[in-house]
C-alpha cells in the first residue's frame, strides 16, 4: 500500500485556547483510515523543521473525501502548520498505526480525554455512534476553553461530563467517582483514554477491577512513523518480561494493562 499522500487543505481555523482545526481533502486516505490511526505530516517544505509531526484523526469523512485533525500549537512545527492557508498542499504519510479496537457488538463505550488528547476520541465516538454503540464521555482540561469536542459530542446525544483544573474538579481523586459511575453504566464494554498518563493509570485500575478492557492512545517522539527506525519506544510488559514496542506501528493504541505508565 502506498502511504504517501498529498492533502489539499480546505480549512485551517483558530479555535482559541491555542487549538486549530484543520480539514483536508484526501479521498483515499479518508476511506482507508480508522479512528485511532494518525497521519505523519511535513509541516513545511524543506529541511526546517526536519522531521514530520504525527497527528491523530479527529474526524474521518469518507463520504466527503475529507480528513480532519485538531491540533495544539506547541512548537515550531505546529506553529508553521497553523500558518497554512486553505488551498495549500500538505505532504503526509498515512493512515499509520493501529486504531482503536472498537468492539462491533459493544453496547456502550467510555471515552476519557484530557486537553488535545480528546481529539482521537472524537473520531472513535463518531464511529461508535455509527454502529449503534452508546458513548459516555469524561473530558478534562485546564479550563473550559481548553475542552474540545464537547459540543460535537452533545450534538450527537452523548452525555458529557467535563472537569477542569480551574474549577478544581480534574484531580484524579475527584475524577475517580465520576469514572467509576460511568464505567458502571449498564452495557459498558470498553474504555478508552488519551492525553494524560495520570488518567490512564486511574482508568487502568478502575477498569481492571470491573473486568472492562481499557485502551490508551500514547505519544512518543517519532522519526519514520512506519516502524522502521525504532525511536518511538514505549515500555510494555510481556510474558517474557519488559520490552519496548513502537508507538507508531505497534500502537499508538495499546491495552492499558500492557503498558508501563511511568
Amino acid at each position: 500500500m502506498n502511504v504517501s499522500h498529498i492533502l489539499t487543505v480546505t480549512k485551517n481555523e483558530d479555535q482559541g485556547a491555542g487549538y486549530f482545526h484543520l480539514v483536508a481533502r484526501a479521498p483515499e486516505l479518508a476511506s482507508a483510515a480508522r479512528p485511532g490511526q494518525f497521519i505523519h505530516v511535513l509541516c513545511a517544505p524543506g529541511v526546517d523543521p526536519f522531521l514530520r509531526r504525527p497527528f491523530s484523526f479527529y474526524r474521518l469523512r469518507p463520504e466527503a473525501g475529507e480528513v480532519e485533525i485538531y491540533y495544539q500549537v506547541v512548537g515550531k512545527g505546529t506553529h508553521l502548520l497553523s500558518q497554512i492557508q486553505p488551498g495549500t498542499k500538505l505532504d503526509a504519510l498515512g493512515p499509520l498505526g493501529q486504531g482503536f479496537p472498537l468492539d462491533p457488538k459493544a453496547q456502550r463505550i467510555l471515552i476519557l480525554g484530557r486537553g488535545i488528547g480528546t481529539a482521537p476520541l472524537i473520531a472513535l465516538a463518531e464511529a461508535a455512534r455509527a454502529q449503534g454503540t452508546g458513548v459516555s464521555a469524561i473530558l478534562s482540561a485546564r479550563n473550559p476553553d481548553a475542552i474540545i469536542g464537547d459540543r460535537l459530542l452533545a450534538s450527537w446525544g452523548v452525555e458529557v461530563t467535563t472537569v477542569t483544573d480551574e474549577s478544581g474538579t480534574s484531580d484524579p481523586a475527584q475524577v475517580e467517582p465520576l469514572l467509576a459511575a460511568a464505567l458502571d453504566k449498564p452495557g459498558t464494554a470498553q474504555a478508552f483514554v488519551c492525553g494524560s498518563r495520570r488518567l490512564a493509570r486511574l482508568l487502568r485500575r478502575l477498569a481492571a477491577a470491573r473486568g472492562i478492557p481499557a485502551f490508551g492512545s500514547l505519544e512518543e517522539r517519532m522519526g519514520c512513523g512506519l516502524g522502521g527506525c525504532l525511536v518511538c519506544a514505549c515500555r510494555v510488559r510481556t510474558p517474557e518480561g519488559e520490552t519496548y514496542k513502537r508507538v507508531c506501528n505497534d500502537g499508538p493504541v495499546f491495552p492499558l494493562e500492557e503498558v508501563v505508565l511511568g
Binding site: 529541511v47 526536519f50 525511536v231
Partner: peptide, 20 residues
C-alpha cells in the same frame, strides 16, 4: 538488546540525533 529508554530522537538543524 532492549535499547535505550525514550526519548530516543531529537530534531536538529537539517538532521537528527538518535539514541536507539
Amino acid at each position: 538488546r532492549l535499547g535505550n529508554p525514550p526519548p530516543r530522537i531529537a530534531e536538529t538543524t537539517a538532521g537528527m540525533l538518535n539514541a536507539v
